[in-house]
Design a protein around this nucleic acid. Structure first.
Lengths: 145, 145
DNA sequence: TTAACTGATACTAAATTAGTATCAGTTAAC
DNA sequence: GTTAACTGATACTAATTTAGTATCAGTTAA
């Protein structure tokens, strides 16, 4: 069971890269090298992130992209929704006729409950949190002076 | 984000059908009609369930399939693992070199945590539980005498 | 002997995911 | 004002997964 697609995975990692270099225009090239993401693929992912308003861009030489807002306000859930669509809340609740088969219905009820949990969890994880985790890990692994 | 594939969804519903008719051989045809599952597709799903030991079959006229054990011991998690593979515990833990990119690593850590939650939840849901939920729903919706 | 079944397996179609390529337009710097 | 370094837009292909179909062989009950 694969939770995140490459799109989402790469997007989050790109957002982390951008979040670690605040107030500067970072090129797609630089991110693609830093995160080992195929350049053209990342470009398309970036364009989605720009369209959705999570990052802003500047064209031309010396241009690039940067986060549009505080990393703490960018949730992994938001990124998932851009690339994989919203976590499905089963149609069951809204369209009664789909529930005529009740075996289907009780199963969906459980699925909905679990999907909601996943949703809530991914809403708690922000790019800001990942960056601070990352910095903590890096400090721990630094050789002692 | 789709949690269950049709394979798993159909399989669970088929198991519910079988669990509701204990001690009798139920044909794939009957299940396919009851649950509105394409017959040939269900047949292949059944064959997987048989191979994996969740159901047993009897060949020939008057044959069919039945649950191999108590519905309370058949977990949705088991079914997911048959058709969608185990919930991925990131390779990150086992192959250190994949963690050289730390942005990747902190993200995976969160994913692993959430996957574990999902895993645990689907382990709690058994076919027996779904059947009892189902019976409860049916009683509630019966017209009063 | 025949009809009702499952066992095994090969196949196709559709959808999703992953990745590539190209050309147009913008900007900084020389 | 030309050029190099960028993003914007968009069209395309390849690989993988998911969904579904079809067929023939073998087993069993009646």
């Amino acid at each position: 069971m694969k939770v995140l697609t490459k799109h989402t995975d790469y997007a989050v990692r790109a957002l982390i890269s951008l979040g670690m270099k605040p107030d500067s225009w970072v090129t797609a090239k630089a991110v693609s090298e830093e995160q080992a993401i195929p350049y053209q693929f990342l470009r398309r992912i970036m364009q989605e992130l720009i369209k959705s308003g999570l990052v802003v861009s500047r064209e031309g030489a010396g241009g690039g992209v940067r986060l549009a807002r505080d990393p703490d306000t960018i949730r992994v859930k938001d990124v998932i929704e851009i690339f994989q669509g919203a976590v499905q809340v089963s149609e069951c609740m809204f369209r009664k006729q789909l529930c005529s088969n009740r075996a289907n219905c009780v199963l969906r009820h459980e699925i909905m409950r679990i999907e909601q949990m996943v949703n809530d969890e991914f809403a708690k994880v922000t790019v800001g949190k990942l960056i601070s985790d990352l910095k903590r890990v890096q400090v721990l692994s630094e050789p002692k002076l």
